[in-house]
Design a protein around this nucleic acid. Structure first.
Lengths: 220, 220, 220, 220
DNA sequence: CATGAATGAGGTTTCATTCAT
DNA sequence: TATGAATGAAACCTCATTCAT
């Protein structure tokens, strides 16, 4: 079975109802600006310290409100965490999946995927988000806190990539697909955590040379 | 400046004395069996839940001893964490660095590095260790708990790899070095966290094809 | 060197910042009522059981609040102890020192000192405070917990008293000064700990007769 | 009612049986040298840190034995404390009481009492013992741990002293008696805790001058 | 006698959460 | 909305005591 990559089914969580970022359950809606501030602060802190390493007090302090106030906007620390997760999936993962759809030739799709990934890794605003996601990827215990199945979001990609490498005449299409994904994944990681030895141009060139240069075999 | 990769300077920690795994402060040594049990249980749990997600009580329970007994063998939760870190660095990172030393040709060294990495990723016993290390990589806050500087162990590799790709006549040696490292790093990650879509042979074949096949350029 | 007896330098503690009784770090100020209750309860208990003999739980119980709530008002058990110490020094020791200043004749100063001391020993509210201070005087280990040097508060007195006895023409001024101080000290002790055999009038009469009766020598 | 000062009824404690210092219950008896070492170490430590401020581990460490071994010689920390109390009462308080018995004139008895007290305050070996006793005097909570009633040992003195001052023709015999006792008490305190401003000769001279010089009135 | 090991109660402190105002 | 205050569970750690060897 092959999942659609852009099918948005996060919200039908088995863990029960949880709200979108912008429309709280208990409130009218117009000035939920404070809501955003809290979520932003929480993302920053979670990215650095992990779920258990961050206290509600710390989030409140960073926003500049009282601890109690947090609970007017969100019903628990866990809910904040879930909302952030969903938000990031939507903003970061879904567009990425979009790069693979459409009618472009395989090499273009793969190139677009790489470009999108490397671009995202560099944007200041994404660094925290990526950090955040790695926390979750790395701590299976946290999956219990999440509204949707984490692996649900990663698995499908591999199935989409293999045919593309086949189409390109790659000698080892399945391995290439895995490696490609792993590599892009890791580029995010490295871009986020160790920007000092992350050189976008050099890496993109290497990717072009090693994965996206269909000519090299023809030259032989 | 280029660090030696096998220089074992972890123990000269700025955080002060901490003991090696086998010669604790309070124990003579003959049956350090219980000690091992505790460390093993702790590694398992830390790998799943992260430092803050694991309680000393949980560790004790898994070993089947009382909470207080843990403190007979270790002076704090943090000490356990540090000892595990050092142990893993020694058992996993140092041998990896060893693969790059000696007089073999560049391609052999790079192949050895990849083989060692992929092998390690598969060994059941390493999975937890890798999990554990990613926790730390991903939570900068935890670095404060560690006896030695975390980045100290990762940075030097990049400097060692570039000349090897140059020696191989690679078109983009620096980018290749970065990519190679990132990719192997990520193989560990994927092997540990998502063994379901980790196919060692396919990946190794792709690596051979894309990074270690010097012939393709000569053919052109 | 002779310290000024009323120089208030307690707060410039080497142990770092700690707040006065009335202006804590976390509290605005209006109803510091609970704060006072806690401090009062703590003083009572410390006076009976000593620092290590009293648990935070016990303090909370006596006030009728939860253990956790104590930590909303104070950051640690030790801080409570320090604040009590400072408070008592200010309320009990400093006024005592004040009795020795000014231009009155020696005999008046000494009499005032004795009166103040005996009065203080009788006031119900001071009993605990004196108890409290003796705990500290008697347990050198506790000095480490204190914000200022304990002996700093006692030593200077002796130097102030000797000249007064000289001025009175006492036959053994230095011994008298020591004895006088020791005696008053002990009056506090006895008044606090063994009120059953503490007779203020009898003692004051004896003090007048033995220390403050300059006429007896002139009669000779 | 007037207690006899030398009546040795400590051991008939209401708290139940407890053994003398030299003859343990569970052991033959010959080499209870280790017992002494433990008691000595305990006294030293208790004198500094109070009952609750000292751990059995600390006592064991100072003696150089294992914690468990302490429990071969004594059945509990409390028992050690009790034994030390009894020992000190016997060695320090009882001889003091002895000074008041016999047929000597009042002034000689009072002088002997003062001499004994001041001597005891100076002997190195008594400093800890006095420290120890003050701990107890100052922490009413500890009285519960003791085998006999603490006040039992102090109260009788006052009744013995008043007649002596009467016999001397003192103007305020009861006050004098109280003050005398208080003062000597405090001399111990000061001698033990603040030896720096304790000058035995000066104090003894002042005592002679103020309390024991019956001639001054005759001079008048 | 002596020790290393183990236990469990209890100590200090933290923290998610609630609630009155 | 927002806060200060309060709670109670649970976290880390200590320590008196026991026990097998």
């Amino acid at each position: 079975m092959m999942y659609s990559l852009t099918d948005r089914s996060v919200s039908e969580s088995p863990a029960g109802e949880h709200h979108t970022l912008e429309s709280p359950a208990r409130r009218k809606d117009i000035p939920p600006q404070r809501r955003r501030q809290i979520l932003d602060a929480a993302r920053e802190l979670f990215a650095q310290g992990g779920y258990h390493g961050v206290t509600v007090e710390a989030i409140a302090e960073r926003v500049g409100v009282s601890k109690g106030n947090i609970y007017w906007y969100f019903k628990s620390k866990q809910e904040i965490f879930q909302l952030l997760f969903d938000d990031i999936v939507e903003k970061l993962f879904l567009p990425l999946a979009g790069a693979l759809e459409g009618e472009a030739p395989a090499v273009e799709k793969l190139r677009a995927l790489a470009r999108y990934t490397l671009d995202a890794a560099e944007k200041e605003e994404n660094v925290e988000a990526l950090h955040f996601m790695w926390q979750i990827g790395v701590q299976p215990e946290l999956h219990k806190l999440l509204p949707s199945d984490y692996s649900h979001w990663v698995s499908p990609f591999i199935e989409h990539l293999t045919p593309l490498f086949e189409e390109m005449g790659d000698a080892t299409p399945e391995g290439a697909a895995q490696l490609y994904l792993i590599m892009l994944d890791a580029c995010w990681f490295v871009g986020a955590l160790r920007p000092d030895f992350y050189d976008r141009e050099a890496i993109m060139a290497a990717i072009e040379d090693k994965f996206l240069n269909p000519g090299r075999r023809q030259d032989a």
